[in-house]
Simulated assay, not measured.
Amino acid sequence: MSDEYIINLYWERSEKAIYETTLVYGRYCHKIAMNVLASKEDSDECVNDTYARAWKAIPPNRPNKSGL
């Protein structure tokens, strides 16, 4: 699954965007959260909050890969 495809799902307000994000980035996000928080419950909440913030930010903002 490409990042562009996932961003387009967010842009279309498709709930599938969260599902696809979880498939691609879920393990990575949970690993980072666990390294910082050392609690499964807190890590789950942190990752879910991250998905919610992405949902709220896209649209109106479209991320670009260049970081500019």
Rank of each mutant, 00 (worst) to 15 (best):
P60A: 10
S43N: 03
W55A: 05
P59R: 07
P59T: 10
C29S: 14
D49S: 02
T22C: 08
R53G: 03
Y19S: 10
K16L: 14
L37H: 06
M34A: 00
K65L: 15
E45Y: 02
V36H: 08
E12S: 02
K65Y: 15
A17R: 01
S2E: 13
W11Q: 12
W11P: 03
Y19P: 04
A52W: 04
G26I: 07
I6H: 04
D49E: 11
N64H: 11
R27T: 12
N8K: 05
S43Q: 02
A57C: 11
T50Y: 05
Y25C: 09
K40F: 09
Y28A: 15
L37G: 00
A17E: 01
S14R: 12
C29T: 04
D49G: 01
C46T: 08
K65M: 15
I32F: 07
G26Q: 06
A17L: 04
S39C: 00
K56T: 05
D3P: 08
A38F: 15
T50I: 05
A33K: 00
I58C: 01
V36K: 13
M1W: 13
A38W: 15
G67E: 12
M1I: 14
L68H: 08
E20M: 07
E41T: 08
Y51P: 06
N48G: 12
L37F: 04
P63G: 13
I7A: 01
K56G: 01
Y10N: 07
L68M: 12
Y51K: 01
P60N: 09
I6E: 05
I7K: 04
A52Y: 02
C46G: 04
H30L: 15
E45N: 06
